[in-house]
Design a protein around this nucleic acid. Structure first.
Lengths: 152, 152
DNA sequence: GTTGAAACCGGTTGTCT
DNA sequence: AGACAACCGGTTTCAAC
């Protein structure tokens, strides 16, 4: 499915505020309500729009500490990767996890209340995994930018 | 403001789907519509709920390449940090940017269409900044987990 | 915090251009 | 494919418990 300018405009707007009314969207996109409605329906069905969510304020939710960590797995064990992937999916503290090129295997983004909370997570959840060989943590001192908006 | 179990339930639900109706929420939280409504209003006003957004599918949007990069700044120049921060905020390709502990200064999460697109960004936008001394890029080979849901 | 009612919007659908 | 209008469902507000 190919997107035109109007589709892109709609996506750009919904990425910043999903509660805009059809009327507000129609004014900003220069289309009447009917086509706006139809286009959104198609964008949802095609999967361009994945879901609608509420974004919470991390600090207000008591997760003041943000940590990125590099994890190296024990590559001798063939099951290591599957094991680690599944474990990470079940950890609510881990918000992002991916396999990266370079000299470590995984990059994780982890939230915690404070250093003590992170230490508990580290000791009790992360380092206990059989598949984990090495972990190094990078603590976020200042968050310059954090957005869910993809360039459209 | 202190959150009770009902507030947490509401936040947990809205983080996965912000389009649940008051009726659906009231059924899952075991409260009637009136208090659900009132609690959401308070959570919005207190800032626990930051905003409502549509999340798009990165690959469907043609951003197949995901890259994390470590950036080291030229620390001789005092304006470096402010300059770099402001530049990054203006780059739509950069979805996350933070100052981290360790042997580099910044960690960036960048999306691009493909390697060529990333190379253009790298050469024309990132490496040209006066403040930048060194960049190393880590390419994401597999995304295991990516969520906006904070643990509640 | 609950229920019920009423008013108001906005989403949804059908028809016409 | 887009505009218009009527309908319907959900949100919002209120009063009484």
């Amino acid at each position: 499915m190919k997107l035109d300018t109007a589709d892109r405009d709609i996506l750009r707007l919904l990425q910043t505020n999903s509660q805009l009314t059809m009327k507000e969207l129609s004014e900003q996109v220069n289309l009447s309500i009917t086509p706006i409605h139809e286009r959104i329906r198609k964008l949802e069905k095609s999967g361009h729009i994945d879901r609608y969510v509420a974004l919470l304020n991390r600090k207000k939710m008591g997760k003041a500490l943000l940590v990125y960590c590099n994890v190296t797995l024990d590559k001798q064990r063939r099951e290591s990767f599957e094991e680690f992937n599944e474990a990470v999916k079940r950890m609510p503290e881990v918000m992002e996890c991916c396999v990266v090129s370079g000299n470590f295997d995984y990059l994780l983004k982890v939230v915690a209340e404070d250093m003590e909370d992170y230490n508990n997570f580290y000791q009790q959840n992360l380092s206990v995994l059989q598949s984990v060989q090495h972990i190094s943590s990078f603590f976020v001192m200042s968050e310059i930018k954090s957005t869910t908006q993809l360039p459209v």
